[in-house]
Design a protein around this nucleic acid. Structure first.
Lengths: 326, 326
DNA sequence: CTGAAAGCGCTTACAG
DNA sequence: CTGAAAGCGCTTACAG
């Protein structure tokens, strides 16, 4: 089935059918005829021919650092949902946490004439800047903020603040903050900064800051030394994964949570609810952030105005992993 | 940059450049010239023009029931990896567990002239059969077997058998098997069948079979009634998710695992290791199955022979959730 | 080995 | 509102 056959069957010119398909002006009468023929034949336009002429597609490329992460999945689900409803297609490009592949993906997606790019960002390097600069395609960052780009971010700083306030309200005076590298602005800098703001004016409160990677296993390894030398009453962990590592390490040495040690996380990962005891955490709405991202990229594609930074919400979920000391 | 410009710069005809690009016969000399020009200009062929003529692409569509599942992520990672290495592109189509959307996706992918389809299958209905029949594209099933299709499956039956053997070897005599609907052949039928084979000849062993859904929360709800009326020494759960639900429910009522109750799962989900106590389970190699699937679909696309059914391996992982009673 | 030409299935000014 | 024609950037017989 081609547009030519449809045109012939409907007794009109190809261009008229094309106009009908693209919402151009067609008389009611011919509209009906074409509609009829298309229904009968089940005709679907050839995407390649269309894209070849129009020099663009209705595909939004989303670059993700990894596929096997709760945050990624939920965000993708949100993006997918909104894109689908608006007749855009989602193309997922997985980079397996390889920044080189991330840059390659940018060029590769541009080459496929995708309409826009959503990047679930971790770090933005000069090579990212250069690539985005070259390709001239609407771009939206999710999870990290950068003054060169539009972005949808989580409220990491405020989440850190709320966690801090809560921990203090439960009477904790000796806190181990287990964070990550400051190269990650959102997770490494902002969550900590928010936390610091909350504890700053409590003079009796002592906080020591430690750093680990995003890996659960690394947190398990780091735990014993910190716990033994510093003896904190609580571990405030910069991610749920780290919190899970700390929980595992603590339970392995027979500690009762939260009686012997309290723990908090960030993220709102499903496991934190399943696990026993369930973990107090700041829950980010990843799926909603995905929907916001999709909405914004669509607007960008249509040259509509949007805010430079859209902040997605969070909620503090108080569960069973923090002991009340006062 | 178009092929015409490259041709002009290299001083040859478009068709010669095209032949060079597609591995046709070109003299060493012209090959060098073209190579040079392409390098200088950074020319990349237009995919749409190419696909429009060639009437096919190098895209493999993978239809997944859901994005937020460990099994799905791992399988996709495997598929992605092997496809990338072989210059195919992966297009992921998420159906959010909606069988209608699954069927729609089949047609939609076919319409995009993808080279092949991998379906992470749950159930195969007549409408699936009809769709695949119509589109005439190589198809491969993952996770479920069906005599109409090529497939890569997990060794569910043998895994069930090994779990059964192990449970008996630990002296359990009163077993609750918590399974799922038999509409799911792999999970609902085969795992149970394997398990039954293992326990069949142990006369002292009593097994009661129960059914729940795939949802963790449902397992939590089902737990109390089963536990109180039947009082088993172990819950053999048909998935890790169900096992996690049982664990949660048991811990909520203060039971010590495995002292008061033993639990096993199927799947090898990451959480089963993190959680305390860690759960004994049959670990399926999802990523490897993904690689196998990608290998097979590529062969199918190239008209190479493959086995109708490829069985992916598993391993029994013995951890801390089963008590030794003998 | 190489080139000229036709054609894949659309869209888009342009003219009426 | 409608149609004829050109052209998007490739590939593929065909002829030499």
């Amino acid at each position: 089935m081609t547009i030519a056959e449809i045109a012939k069957l409907a007794g009109v010119a190809k261009s008229t059918v094309s106009r009908y398909l693209n919402g151009g002006s067609v008389s009611e009468n011919t509209k009906l005829k074409i509609e009829q023929v298309i229904k009968e034949t089940g005709y679907v336009p050839n995407t390649f021919a269309r894209s070849l002429k129009a020099k663009k597609t209705s595909i939004v490329g989303t670059i993700v650092p990894r596929l096997n992460s709760y945050a990624t999945s939920q965000t993708l689900i949100g993006i997918d949902e909104h894109l689908r409803e608006n007749n855009y297609q989602l193309l997922i490009s997985n980079t397996s946490q390889d920044l080189n592949r991330e840059v390659e993906s940018i060029y590769s997606l541009a080459n496929q004439k995708i309409a826009g790019i959503i990047l679930l960002a971790t770090q933005i390097t000069d090579r990212h800047l250069e690539a985005f600069d070259k390709i001239n395609v609407p771009v939206l960052l999710v999870g990290q903020q950068n003054h060169h780009f539009y972005s949808v971010i989580h409220n990491d700083e405020h989440a850190g603040y709320e966690i801090g306030k809560y921990v203090i309200s439960q009477g904790h005076k000796k806190i181990a903050y287990l964070g990550v590298t400051e190269e990650d602005i959102a997770v490494g800098v902002k969550r900590k900064r928010g936390f610091q703001k909350a504890v700053r004016y409590d003079n009796e409160c002592e906080v020591h800051y430690f750093e680990t990677s995003f890996k659960l296993t690394e947190a398990i390894k780091k735990f014993p030394a910190i716990f033994e030398t510093y003896k904190p009453s609580i571990f405030v962990c910069a991610t749920d994964n780290i919190a899970l590592g700390v929980l595992k390490a603590a339970q392995m040495r027979g500690l009762k949570i939260p009686k012997d040690l309290s723990i908090t996380g960030f993220g709102g990962y499903e496991v934190t609810e399943i696990i026993h005891p369930s973990i107090t955490t700041a829950n980010f709405f990843y799926k909603e952030a995905g929907i916001l991202a999709a909405k914004n990229i669509v607007k960008l594609i249509n040259n509509e105005e949007i805010e430079k930074v859209t902040v997605s919400n969070f909620e503090l979920i108080i569960r069973d992993s923090v002991d009340k000391l006062n």
